[in-house]
Design a protein around this nucleic acid. Structure first.
Lengths: 235, 235
DNA sequence: TCAAAAGTGTTCGTAATACACCCATGG
DNA sequence: CCATGGGTGTATTACGAACACTTTTGA
Protein backbone atom coordinates (compact mmCIF):
# COMPACT_ATOMS: atom_id res chain seq x y z
CA UNK A 1 0.00 0.00 0.00
CA UNK A 2 2.93 2.31 0.77
CA UNK A 3 5.74 2.85 -1.73
CA UNK A 4 8.82 1.54 0.05
CA UNK A 5 11.14 4.48 -0.53
CA UNK A 6 8.81 7.44 -0.74
CA UNK A 7 10.23 10.81 0.12
CA UNK A 8 7.73 11.68 2.80
CA UNK A 9 8.11 11.76 6.51
CA UNK A 10 5.70 9.62 8.50
CA UNK A 11 4.54 10.33 12.01
CA UNK A 12 3.43 7.63 14.40
CA UNK A 13 2.80 6.96 18.05
CA UNK A 14 4.03 4.14 20.28
CA UNK A 15 2.70 3.42 23.73
CA UNK A 16 4.48 1.92 26.72
CA UNK A 17 1.69 0.38 28.79
CA UNK A 18 2.69 -0.86 32.21
CA UNK A 19 0.83 -2.90 34.76
CA UNK A 20 1.63 -5.28 37.58
CA UNK A 21 0.67 -8.95 37.15
CA UNK A 22 1.33 -11.42 39.95
CA UNK A 23 3.85 -9.16 41.56
CA UNK A 24 5.75 -8.58 38.34
CA UNK A 25 5.99 -5.46 36.21
CA UNK A 26 4.59 -6.21 32.75
CA UNK A 27 4.41 -4.35 29.45
CA UNK A 28 1.76 -4.66 26.76
CA UNK A 29 3.35 -5.79 23.49
CA UNK A 30 2.30 -7.11 20.12
CA UNK A 31 4.01 -9.97 18.34
CA UNK A 32 5.03 -8.75 14.88
CA UNK A 33 3.82 -10.95 12.04
CA UNK A 34 5.55 -9.17 9.16
CA UNK A 35 9.10 -8.07 8.48
CA UNK A 36 10.97 -6.10 9.52
CA UNK A 37 11.53 -7.68 12.92
CA UNK A 38 8.98 -10.45 12.22
CA UNK A 39 8.38 -12.53 15.31
CA UNK A 40 9.74 -9.87 17.66
CA UNK A 41 7.72 -8.00 20.25
CA UNK A 42 6.74 -4.41 19.51
CA UNK A 43 4.99 -1.71 21.46
CA UNK A 44 1.39 -0.98 20.40
CA UNK A 45 1.47 1.89 17.95
CA UNK A 46 0.83 3.14 14.47
CA UNK A 47 0.49 6.18 12.25
CA UNK A 48 -1.07 9.46 13.33
CA UNK A 49 -3.99 10.67 11.22
CA UNK A 50 -3.64 14.04 9.56
CA UNK A 51 -6.16 15.83 11.74
CA UNK A 52 -5.76 13.72 14.85
CA UNK A 53 -4.45 14.93 18.18
CA UNK A 54 -1.35 13.05 19.29
CA UNK A 55 -2.84 11.91 22.58
CA UNK A 56 -5.97 10.71 20.80
CA UNK A 57 -3.84 8.78 18.34
CA UNK A 58 -2.02 7.00 21.15
CA UNK A 59 -5.29 6.23 22.91
CA UNK A 60 -6.80 4.92 19.70
CA UNK A 61 -3.87 2.63 18.94
CA UNK A 62 -4.05 1.26 22.43
CA UNK A 63 -7.76 0.59 22.17
CA UNK A 64 -7.23 -1.12 18.84
CA UNK A 65 -4.54 -3.33 20.32
CA UNK A 66 -6.51 -4.34 23.40
CA UNK A 67 -10.04 -4.13 22.03
CA UNK A 68 -11.04 -2.33 25.20
CA UNK A 69 -11.96 1.28 25.75
CA UNK A 70 -9.48 3.13 27.90
CA UNK A 71 -11.07 6.54 28.18
CA UNK A 72 -10.17 7.27 31.76
CA UNK A 73 -6.63 6.17 31.14
CA UNK A 74 -3.86 8.25 32.56
CA UNK A 75 -1.43 8.88 29.75
CA UNK A 76 1.56 11.13 29.40
CA UNK A 77 3.98 11.93 26.65
CA UNK A 78 7.40 10.36 26.97
CA UNK A 79 9.56 11.61 24.13
CA UNK A 80 9.82 11.60 20.37
CA UNK A 81 12.11 9.20 18.56
CA UNK A 82 13.34 10.31 15.18
CA UNK A 83 16.54 8.50 14.23
CA UNK A 84 16.39 8.44 10.42
CA UNK A 85 17.20 4.71 10.45
CA UNK A 86 14.84 3.61 13.17
CA UNK A 87 12.43 2.11 10.65
CA UNK A 88 14.17 0.45 7.65
CA UNK A 89 11.10 0.88 5.44
CA UNK A 90 10.60 4.62 5.58
CA UNK A 91 11.37 7.69 7.62
CA UNK A 92 9.10 7.41 10.61
CA UNK A 93 9.17 9.71 13.60
CA UNK A 94 7.35 8.34 16.60
CA UNK A 95 5.90 10.15 19.57
CA UNK A 96 6.04 7.76 22.53
CA UNK A 97 3.55 7.74 25.39
CA UNK A 98 3.46 6.17 28.81
CA UNK A 99 0.25 4.65 30.14
CA UNK A 100 -0.35 2.80 33.36
CA UNK A 101 -3.16 0.34 33.91
CA UNK A 102 -4.48 -1.06 37.17
CA UNK A 103 -4.14 -4.80 37.70
CA UNK A 104 -5.97 -6.06 34.61
CA UNK A 105 -8.26 -8.59 36.30
CA UNK A 106 -9.93 -5.85 38.26
CA UNK A 107 -10.29 -3.24 35.55
CA UNK A 108 -11.73 -5.11 32.61
CA UNK A 109 -8.68 -4.29 30.52
CA UNK A 110 -5.73 -6.58 30.37
CA UNK A 111 -5.96 -10.27 30.79
CA UNK A 112 -9.36 -9.90 29.22
CA UNK A 113 -7.79 -8.64 26.01
CA UNK A 114 -9.94 -8.83 22.92
CA UNK A 115 -10.21 -12.26 21.29
CA UNK A 116 -7.74 -12.53 18.47
CA UNK A 117 -5.87 -9.48 19.69
CA UNK A 118 -2.16 -9.81 19.16
CA UNK A 119 -1.45 -7.88 22.34
CA UNK A 120 -0.05 -9.66 25.38
CA UNK A 121 1.35 -8.80 28.76
CA UNK A 122 5.03 -9.71 28.94
CA UNK A 123 7.25 -9.25 31.99
CA UNK A 124 9.24 -6.07 31.43
CA UNK A 125 12.44 -7.77 32.54
CA UNK A 126 12.17 -10.24 29.65
CA UNK A 127 11.82 -7.40 27.15
CA UNK A 128 14.88 -5.73 28.58
CA UNK A 129 16.83 -8.95 28.64
CA UNK A 130 16.64 -11.90 26.27
CA UNK A 131 13.69 -10.93 24.07
CA UNK A 132 14.90 -7.71 22.45
CA UNK A 133 11.92 -5.85 20.99
CA UNK A 134 11.61 -4.57 17.42
CA UNK A 135 12.84 -1.20 16.14
CA UNK A 136 14.10 1.10 18.91
CA UNK A 137 11.36 -0.09 21.21
CA UNK A 138 13.82 -1.31 23.80
CA UNK A 139 15.07 2.25 24.20
CA UNK A 140 11.53 3.59 24.39
CA UNK A 141 10.66 0.99 27.01
CA UNK A 142 13.74 1.85 29.05
CA UNK A 143 12.83 5.53 28.93
CA UNK A 144 9.24 4.80 29.91
CA UNK A 145 10.31 2.62 32.78
CA UNK A 146 12.70 5.25 34.05
CA UNK A 147 9.94 7.86 33.80
CA UNK A 148 7.62 5.66 35.82
CA UNK A 149 10.31 5.03 38.45
CA UNK A 150 11.04 8.72 38.74
CA UNK A 151 7.40 9.75 38.90
CA UNK A 152 6.71 7.41 41.79
CA UNK A 153 8.89 9.72 43.84
CA UNK A 154 7.12 12.98 43.33
CA UNK A 155 3.70 12.21 41.88
CA UNK A 156 0.67 10.16 42.80
CA UNK A 157 1.14 8.00 39.70
CA UNK A 158 1.39 4.83 41.81
CA UNK A 159 -2.37 4.94 42.39
CA UNK A 160 -2.83 4.32 38.65
CA UNK A 161 -1.45 0.81 39.13
CA UNK A 162 -4.02 -0.22 41.72
CA UNK A 163 -7.81 -0.45 41.94
CA UNK A 164 -9.94 2.55 42.76
CA UNK A 165 -9.95 1.40 46.37
CA UNK A 166 -6.67 0.03 47.63
CA UNK A 167 -4.70 -0.79 50.74
CA UNK A 168 -1.43 0.85 51.67
CA UNK A 169 0.20 -2.54 51.24
CA UNK A 170 -1.02 -2.72 47.64
CA UNK A 171 0.45 0.72 47.02
CA UNK A 172 3.68 -0.37 48.63
CA UNK A 173 3.83 -3.37 46.31
CA UNK A 174 3.72 -0.95 43.36
CA UNK A 175 6.77 0.87 44.65
CA UNK A 176 8.57 -2.36 45.45
CA UNK A 177 7.93 -3.90 42.05
CA UNK A 178 8.73 -0.80 40.01
CA UNK A 179 11.77 0.19 42.02
CA UNK A 180 12.87 -3.41 42.40
CA UNK A 181 13.57 -3.50 46.12
CA UNK A 182 11.68 -3.92 49.37
CA UNK A 183 10.55 -1.01 51.49
CA UNK A 184 9.98 -0.72 55.21
CA UNK A 185 6.24 -1.27 55.65
CA UNK A 186 5.90 0.94 58.72
CA UNK A 187 7.77 3.91 57.34
CA UNK A 188 6.01 3.61 54.01
CA UNK A 189 2.61 3.64 55.69
CA UNK A 190 3.45 6.75 57.62
CA UNK A 191 4.93 8.59 54.64
CA UNK A 192 1.99 7.87 52.39
CA UNK A 193 -0.73 8.70 54.87
CA UNK A 194 1.01 11.88 56.02
CA UNK A 195 1.67 13.20 52.52
CA UNK A 196 -1.09 15.71 51.95
CA UNK A 197 -3.47 14.78 49.13
CA UNK A 198 -1.86 11.46 48.19
CA UNK A 199 -4.43 9.02 49.61
CA UNK A 200 -7.88 9.49 51.12
CA UNK A 201 -9.26 7.02 53.68
CA UNK A 202 -12.65 5.58 52.76
CA UNK A 203 -13.41 4.22 56.22
CA UNK A 204 -13.85 0.75 54.78
CA UNK A 205 -11.55 -2.15 55.55
CA UNK A 206 -10.29 -5.09 53.60
CA UNK A 207 -9.40 -8.47 55.05
CA UNK A 208 -7.30 -10.87 53.04
CA UNK A 209 -6.68 -14.13 54.88
CA UNK A 210 -4.71 -13.85 58.07
CA UNK A 211 -3.55 -10.65 59.69
CA UNK A 212 -5.23 -7.47 60.76
CA UNK A 213 -7.54 -6.07 58.06
CA UNK A 214 -6.12 -3.09 56.19
CA UNK A 215 -7.86 0.25 55.80
CA UNK A 216 -8.95 1.12 52.27
CA UNK A 217 -8.04 4.34 50.51
CA UNK A 218 -8.77 6.12 47.26
CA UNK A 219 -6.38 8.28 45.29
CA UNK A 220 -6.11 11.87 46.46
CA UNK A 221 -6.32 14.91 44.26
CA UNK A 222 -2.71 16.04 44.49
CA UNK A 223 -0.63 15.52 41.39
CA UNK A 224 2.60 16.49 43.09
CA UNK A 225 3.72 14.96 46.37
CA UNK A 226 5.10 17.12 49.19
CA UNK A 227 7.38 15.89 50.46
CA UNK A 228 8.42 13.38 47.79
CA UNK A 229 9.04 9.71 48.54
CA UNK A 230 12.66 9.53 47.55
CA UNK A 231 14.01 6.36 46.07
CA UNK A 232 16.82 6.21 48.60
CA UNK A 233 14.63 6.83 51.60
CA UNK A 234 12.26 4.07 52.69
CA UNK A 235 14.83 1.61 51.40
CA UNK B 1 5.15 27.09 -2.37
CA UNK B 2 2.91 25.04 -0.11
CA UNK B 3 -0.76 24.43 -0.90
CA UNK B 4 -2.62 25.97 2.02
CA UNK B 5 -4.94 23.08 2.86
CA UNK B 6 -3.01 20.03 1.79
CA UNK B 7 -3.83 16.78 3.49
CA UNK B 8 -0.36 16.02 4.70
CA UNK B 9 1.08 16.20 8.14
CA UNK B 10 4.10 18.44 8.58
CA UNK B 11 6.83 17.96 11.15
CA UNK B 12 8.89 20.79 12.54
CA UNK B 13 11.19 21.69 15.39
CA UNK B 14 11.14 24.67 17.73
CA UNK B 15 13.94 25.61 20.06
CA UNK B 16 13.79 27.31 23.43
CA UNK B 17 17.20 28.92 23.81
CA UNK B 18 17.95 30.39 27.19
CA UNK B 19 20.78 32.56 28.40
CA UNK B 20 21.40 35.12 31.09
CA UNK B 21 21.99 38.74 30.03
CA UNK B 22 22.71 41.40 32.63
CA UNK B 23 21.30 39.29 35.39
CA UNK B 24 18.10 38.55 33.50
CA UNK B 25 16.92 35.30 31.97
CA UNK B 26 16.46 35.78 28.23
CA UNK B 27 15.08 33.73 25.38
CA UNK B 28 16.09 33.81 21.74
CA UNK B 29 13.12 34.77 19.56
CA UNK B 30 12.40 35.83 16.01
CA UNK B 31 9.99 38.61 15.08
CA UNK B 32 7.47 37.18 12.61
CA UNK B 33 7.14 39.17 9.40
CA UNK B 34 4.26 37.24 7.82
CA UNK B 35 0.83 36.16 9.01
CA UNK B 36 -0.27 34.29 10.95
CA UNK B 37 0.85 36.10 14.08
CA UNK B 38 2.69 38.76 12.07
CA UNK B 39 4.68 41.03 14.36
CA UNK B 40 4.65 38.57 17.24
CA UNK B 41 7.69 36.83 18.66
CA UNK B 42 8.25 33.20 17.78
CA UNK B 43 10.77 30.59 18.82
CA UNK B 44 13.42 29.74 16.23
CA UNK B 45 12.25 26.71 14.31
CA UNK B 46 11.16 25.23 11.04
CA UNK B 47 10.44 22.03 9.15
CA UNK B 48 12.38 18.82 9.55
CA UNK B 49 13.93 17.41 6.39
CA UNK B 50 12.88 13.94 5.34
CA UNK B 51 16.18 12.25 6.16
CA UNK B 52 17.27 14.57 8.93
CA UNK B 53 17.75 13.61 12.56
CA UNK B 54 15.52 15.62 14.89
CA UNK B 55 18.39 16.95 16.97
CA UNK B 56 20.27 17.97 13.85
CA UNK B 57 17.18 19.77 12.59
CA UNK B 58 16.91 21.76 15.80
CA UNK B 59 20.60 22.59 15.71
CA UNK B 60 20.38 23.66 12.09
CA UNK B 61 17.41 25.95 12.68
CA UNK B 62 19.22 27.53 15.57
CA UNK B 63 22.34 28.10 13.50
CA UNK B 64 20.27 29.64 10.72
CA UNK B 65 18.57 31.97 13.18
CA UNK B 66 21.76 33.14 14.84
CA UNK B 67 24.20 32.79 11.99
CA UNK B 68 26.63 31.18 14.40
CA UNK B 69 27.77 27.59 14.69
CA UNK B 70 26.66 25.92 17.87
CA UNK B 71 28.23 22.50 17.56
CA UNK B 72 29.16 22.02 21.17
CA UNK B 73 25.74 23.15 22.27
CA UNK B 74 24.00 21.22 24.98
CA UNK B 75 20.54 20.46 23.73
CA UNK B 76 17.78 18.23 24.98
CA UNK B 77 14.35 17.32 23.79
CA UNK B 78 11.49 18.97 25.61
CA UNK B 79 8.24 17.57 24.25
CA UNK B 80 6.22 17.35 21.07
CA UNK B 81 3.29 19.64 20.43
CA UNK B 82 0.62 18.35 18.12
CA UNK B 83 -2.67 20.12 18.71
CA UNK B 84 -4.37 19.94 15.29
CA UNK B 85 -5.14 23.68 15.47
CA UNK B 86 -1.77 24.91 16.63
CA UNK B 87 -0.90 26.20 13.16
CA UNK B 88 -3.87 27.66 11.28
CA UNK B 89 -2.25 27.04 7.91
CA UNK B 90 -1.68 23.29 8.04
CA UNK B 91 -1.33 20.39 10.41
CA UNK B 92 2.10 20.85 11.91
CA UNK B 93 3.51 18.76 14.71
CA UNK B 94 6.52 20.30 16.39
CA UNK B 95 9.26 18.67 18.40
CA UNK B 96 10.50 21.24 20.89
CA UNK B 97 14.06 21.41 22.20
CA UNK B 98 15.75 23.19 25.04
CA UNK B 99 19.18 24.73 24.58
CA UNK B 100 21.22 26.76 27.00
CA UNK B 101 23.93 29.19 25.97
CA UNK B 102 26.64 30.75 28.10
CA UNK B 103 26.53 34.51 28.52
CA UNK B 104 26.67 35.58 24.85
CA UNK B 105 29.46 38.15 25.10
CA UNK B 106 31.91 35.51 26.18
CA UNK B 107 30.97 32.73 23.80
CA UNK B 108 30.79 34.36 20.42
CA UNK B 109 27.13 33.48 20.10
CA UNK B 110 24.41 35.78 21.25
CA UNK B 111 24.78 39.49 21.28
CA UNK B 112 27.01 38.95 18.29
CA UNK B 113 24.10 37.56 16.28
CA UNK B 114 24.52 37.53 12.55
CA UNK B 115 23.89 40.84 10.76
CA UNK B 116 20.37 40.94 9.44
CA UNK B 117 19.36 38.02 11.58
CA UNK B 118 15.84 38.41 12.87
CA UNK B 119 16.75 36.67 16.12
CA UNK B 120 16.96 38.68 19.33
CA UNK B 121 17.37 38.07 23.03
CA UNK B 122 14.21 39.06 24.86
CA UNK B 123 13.73 38.84 28.63
CA UNK B 124 11.75 35.68 29.30
CA UNK B 125 9.45 37.50 31.69
CA UNK B 126 8.27 39.77 28.87
CA UNK B 127 7.41 36.76 26.69
CA UNK B 128 5.43 35.25 29.53
CA UNK B 129 3.69 38.50 30.29
CA UNK B 130 2.70 41.28 27.94
CA UNK B 131 4.24 40.11 24.66
CA UNK B 132 2.45 36.81 24.03
CA UNK B 133 4.39 34.81 21.45
CA UNK B 134 2.98 33.29 18.25
CA UNK B 135 1.33 29.86 17.96
CA UNK B 136 1.60 27.79 21.14
CA UNK B 137 5.08 29.09 21.77
CA UNK B 138 4.14 30.51 25.13
CA UNK B 139 3.29 27.02 26.32
CA UNK B 140 6.52 25.62 24.87
CA UNK B 141 8.49 28.36 26.58
CA UNK B 142 6.77 27.70 29.90
CA UNK B 143 7.58 24.00 29.61
CA UNK B 144 11.18 24.74 28.68
CA UNK B 145 11.58 27.11 31.57
CA UNK B 146 10.13 24.61 34.00
CA UNK B 147 12.48 21.95 32.65
CA UNK B 148 15.45 24.23 33.16
CA UNK B 149 14.33 25.07 36.69
CA UNK B 150 13.89 21.43 37.54
CA UNK B 151 17.18 20.35 36.01
CA UNK B 152 19.13 22.85 38.07
CA UNK B 153 18.22 20.71 41.04
CA UNK B 154 19.58 17.38 39.97
CA UNK B 155 21.88 18.00 37.00
CA UNK B 156 24.96 20.03 36.23
CA UNK B 157 23.05 22.01 33.60
CA UNK B 158 23.79 25.29 35.38
CA UNK B 159 27.34 25.15 34.09
CA UNK B 160 25.95 25.52 30.55
CA UNK B 161 24.94 29.09 31.41
CA UNK B 162 28.43 30.22 32.38
CA UNK B 163 31.85 30.37 30.76
CA UNK B 164 34.14 27.38 30.65
CA UNK B 165 35.88 28.76 33.73
CA UNK B 166 33.59 30.27 36.29
CA UNK B 167 33.34 31.33 39.92
CA UNK B 168 30.93 29.83 42.40
CA UNK B 169 29.26 33.23 42.58
CA UNK B 170 28.61 33.14 38.84
CA UNK B 171 27.04 29.72 39.21
CA UNK B 172 24.97 30.98 42.09
CA UNK B 173 23.68 33.81 39.93
CA UNK B 174 22.39 31.22 37.46
CA UNK B 175 20.36 29.56 40.16
CA UNK B 176 19.13 32.88 41.52
CA UNK B 177 18.04 34.15 38.12
CA UNK B 178 16.40 30.96 36.91
CA UNK B 179 14.70 30.17 40.20
CA UNK B 180 13.87 33.79 40.83
CA UNK B 181 15.05 34.15 44.41
CA UNK B 182 18.25 34.73 46.32
CA UNK B 183 20.31 31.95 47.83
CA UNK B 184 22.60 31.91 50.84
CA UNK B 185 26.09 32.38 49.40
CA UNK B 186 27.84 30.36 52.09
CA UNK B 187 25.56 27.36 51.97
CA UNK B 188 25.56 27.41 48.18
CA UNK B 189 29.33 27.41 48.04
CA UNK B 190 29.54 24.43 50.36
CA UNK B 191 26.84 22.45 48.57
CA UNK B 192 28.34 22.96 45.13
CA UNK B 193 31.92 22.23 46.06
CA UNK B 194 30.97 19.17 48.10
CA UNK B 195 28.75 17.64 45.43
CA UNK B 196 30.93 15.04 43.77
CA UNK B 197 31.63 15.76 40.11
CA UNK B 198 29.76 19.04 39.84
CA UNK B 199 32.66 21.49 39.70
CA UNK B 200 36.43 21.03 39.41
CA UNK B 201 38.83 23.63 40.84
CA UNK B 202 41.35 24.93 38.33
CA UNK B 203 43.66 26.48 40.89
CA UNK B 204 43.32 29.84 39.18
CA UNK B 205 41.62 32.83 40.78
CA UNK B 206 39.55 35.68 39.47
CA UNK B 207 39.37 39.16 40.93
CA UNK B 208 36.54 41.47 40.02
CA UNK B 209 36.76 44.84 41.72
CA UNK B 210 36.68 44.82 45.47
CA UNK B 211 36.47 41.76 47.63
CA UNK B 212 38.47 38.62 48.03
CA UNK B 213 39.24 36.98 44.65
CA UNK B 214 37.18 33.92 43.89
CA UNK B 215 38.56 30.53 42.93
CA UNK B 216 37.83 29.43 39.36
CA UNK B 217 36.22 26.12 38.48
CA UNK B 218 35.31 24.14 35.39
CA UNK B 219 32.30 21.90 34.95
CA UNK B 220 32.68 18.39 36.34
CA UNK B 221 31.84 15.24 34.50
CA UNK B 222 28.80 14.19 36.50
CA UNK B 223 25.50 14.57 34.72
CA UNK B 224 23.48 13.77 37.82
CA UNK B 225 24.06 15.54 41.12
CA UNK B 226 24.23 13.59 44.38
CA UNK B 227 22.80 14.93 46.52
CA UNK B 228 20.58 17.29 44.51
CA UNK B 229 20.34 21.01 45.23
CA UNK B 230 16.68 21.21 46.10
CA UNK B 231 14.76 24.31 45.21
CA UNK B 232 13.44 24.70 48.72
CA UNK B 233 16.77 24.22 50.41
CA UNK B 234 19.33 26.99 50.15
CA UNK B 235 16.43 29.42 49.96
C1' DT C 1 41.38 50.92 57.53
C1' DC C 2 37.06 50.10 55.75
C1' DA C 3 33.88 47.93 52.54
C1' DA C 4 32.87 44.03 50.07
C1' DA C 5 32.89 39.56 48.48
C1' DA C 6 34.80 34.65 49.36
C1' DG C 7 34.67 31.01 52.06
C1' DT C 8 34.23 28.27 56.82
C1' DG C 9 32.23 26.95 61.45
C1' DT C 10 28.48 26.22 64.38
C1' DT C 11 23.90 25.73 66.01
C1' DC C 12 19.40 24.21 65.56
C1' DG C 13 15.34 22.13 63.80
C1' DT C 14 13.37 18.80 60.82
C1' DA C 15 13.10 14.53 58.56
C1' DA C 16 14.64 9.88 57.27
C1' DT C 17 16.06 5.30 58.92
C1' DA C 18 15.93 1.35 61.71
C1' DC C 19 13.51 -1.29 64.51
C1' DA C 20 10.76 -2.25 68.64
C1' DC C 21 6.28 -2.91 69.75
C1' DC C 22 1.18 -2.99 69.96
C1' DC C 23 -3.29 -4.15 67.20
C1' DA C 24 -6.64 -7.13 65.01
C1' DT C 25 -7.82 -10.91 62.65
C1' DG C 26 -7.85 -16.09 60.76
C1' DG C 27 -6.73 -20.54 61.66
C1' DC D 1 -3.47 -18.69 71.48
C1' DC D 2 -0.35 -18.15 67.94
C1' DA D 3 1.07 -16.69 63.40
C1' DT D 4 0.56 -12.93 60.25
C1' DG D 5 0.24 -8.71 58.39
C1' DG D 6 -1.44 -3.66 59.76
C1' DG D 7 -0.11 0.24 61.94
C1' DT D 8 2.39 3.39 65.64
C1' DG D 9 6.25 4.95 68.74
C1' DT D 10 10.89 6.20 69.25
C1' DA D 11 16.01 6.68 69.17
C1' DT D 12 19.60 7.76 66.17
C1' DT D 13 21.47 10.00 62.47
C1' DA D 14 21.90 13.10 58.63
C1' DC D 15 21.20 17.19 56.47
C1' DG D 16 19.40 21.79 55.38
C1' DA D 17 18.73 26.76 57.07
C1' DA D 18 20.37 30.46 59.35
C1' DC D 19 23.89 33.22 60.54
C1' DA D 20 28.23 34.41 62.88
C1' DC D 21 32.74 34.64 61.73
C1' DT D 22 37.32 34.62 59.31
C1' DT D 23 39.91 35.64 54.93
C1' DT D 24 41.55 38.47 51.22
C1' DT D 25 41.36 41.81 48.24
C1' DG D 26 40.43 47.07 46.17
C1' DA D 27 39.76 51.64 47.23
Amino acid sequence: VEPPDDQTLHLGVDVVVLTILQGELCTLVVRRAEPPFAGRWALPGGPVRVAEDLGDAARRRLEEATGVGVDALRMEQLATYGDPDRDPRRRTVSVAWLAILPVPSASGVGEGLREGSAAEWVPTARLLGPEVPAFDHRRILVDGLERARAKLEYSGIATAFVDREFTIAALREVYEVVWGHRLDAGNFHRKVTRTEGFVVPTGRRHSEGRGRPAALFTAGSEEVLHPPLTRRSLE
